[in-house]
């Protein structure tokens, strides 16, 4: 009943906007502290990013970002609750206040940042759009896809990029649009469409769900830039800063060589001034963020640094086996760069 849910969310958004009084907005941080947990919007099932394992636990890199925020705010990474959202529901859920953070493989674009009352706090994963096809079709390049039926998830940047790509290449296509990514996979397997298009990381993740993953291949073309990251509501800088610096702290921890294994030892005995400031041994850089002095220690101890998160969920320690590539740190040839703590 997802369409009904989307409508319900939209109506909820309309009524909250209509009924809440002008001034008494109240900060997100206060509300989160009061209820005792962070409500986090994640995807409705995408291996590596956010999905539930056989025991019903949420796993994935997007999920870990939420846990890190909870660790920063409460010192306890388990104080987080998850709301699975489809691509169509996600923005309304955040706008209406149903979730505090949206960490759901969402592409940072200008219109989302400026027109929807939302702010992107940073980039968790640099991605790009690709195509997944059955090997039987004998297609080697996306340029050979003229006339294909393409399965897409509704309400995504993917839908727009696809239209742009085919138009600029002078090719025709038939869009087959579903609400959920799982439905696109079912349709591809049934043969309703020839090609599935999505962010490349998602294609690798969805390929695992197929009955015979070896029969399908991801085409080499990457047709767009898809920086994925967490979002918060506009107009609450305090909460925005917490989420943004949670991401930066995870990156800074990796850069400084601080991991979940050595963070407590480093906090107690490190002599490196960068590490001492980051872990709260020198000064209190958590105070202005309105979090505890040892927030980074809690975060890294319970969730790990960015590199650990990556390897565990999407990298070599996972089924997806995606290389770091653009997501390596800046000093290792990638794009991940965080401003310093001082």
């Amino acid at each position: 009943m997802k369409p009904v849910r989307t409508a319900a969310l939209s109506i909820l958004a309309a009524t909250t906007l209509g009924l809440s009084s002008h001034a008494s907005a109240g900060t997100t941080l206060d509300a989160v502290m009061k209820k005792g947990y962070v409500q986090c919007g994640v995807s409705d099932g995408l291996p590596g990013f956010s999905f539930t394992d056989a025991q019903g636990n949420y796993k994935g890199i997007d999920v870990d970002v939420c846990r890190a925020v909870a660790a920063a705010v409460f010192g306890d990474a388990s104080k987080v609750r998850f709301t699975p959202l489809t691509a169509k529901e996600r923005f309304t859920a955040l706008q209406s206040g149903e979730v505090d953070v949206l960490s759901r493989n969402t592409t940072w674009t200008s219109s989302r940042d400026s027109g929807m009352g939302l702010h992107f706090a940073g980039v968790t994963y640099y991605d790009g759009q690709g195509f997944l096809v059955n090997k039987k079709l004998g297609v080697k390049s996306a340029k050979e896809l003229d006339g294909a039926a393409v399965c897409i998830q509704a309400g995504t940047t993917t839908e727009l990029n696809l239209a742009d790509y085919f138009r600029s290449s002078g090719m025709k296509y038939t869009p087959i649009t579903y609400d959920k990514s799982d439905e696109t996979i079912v349709a591809l397997e049934a043969g309703r469409c020839d090609v599935l298009t999505s962010d490349q990381s998602q294609l690798y993740a969805q390929r695992i769900k197929l009955a015979n993953p070896e029969d399908y291949v991801v085409l080499p073309e990457v047709i767009s830039k898809e920086p994925l990251g967490p979002l918060v509501r506009q107009g609450d800088d305090e909460w925005f800063n917490i989420v943004r610096w949670t991401l930066f702290a995870l990156l800074n921890a990796e850069e400084a060589g601080i991991s979940s294994a050595n963070v407590e030892k480093e906090a107690a005995s490190s002599t490196n001034p960068d590490v001492r400031r980051l872990l709260g041994a020198d000064g209190d850089y958590g105070k202005d963020l309105k979090v505890s002095k040892d927030w980074v220690v809690n975060m890294v101890k319970q969730v790990g640094n960015y590199g650990e998160m990556f390897e565990r969920n999407v990298g070599m320690g996972s089924e997806l086996k995606i290389a770091r590539g653009q997501n390596a740190l800046w000093n290792a040839g990638g794009l991940q760069y965080a401003p310093p703590v001082r």
């Binding site: 169509k88 923005f91 009352g117 309400g155 727009l160």
Partner: peptide, 11 residues
Amino acid sequence: AGTALNQTGQA
């Protein structure tokens, strides 16, 4: 009420 809403954000 689905795709257009999502692309524009004007619920």
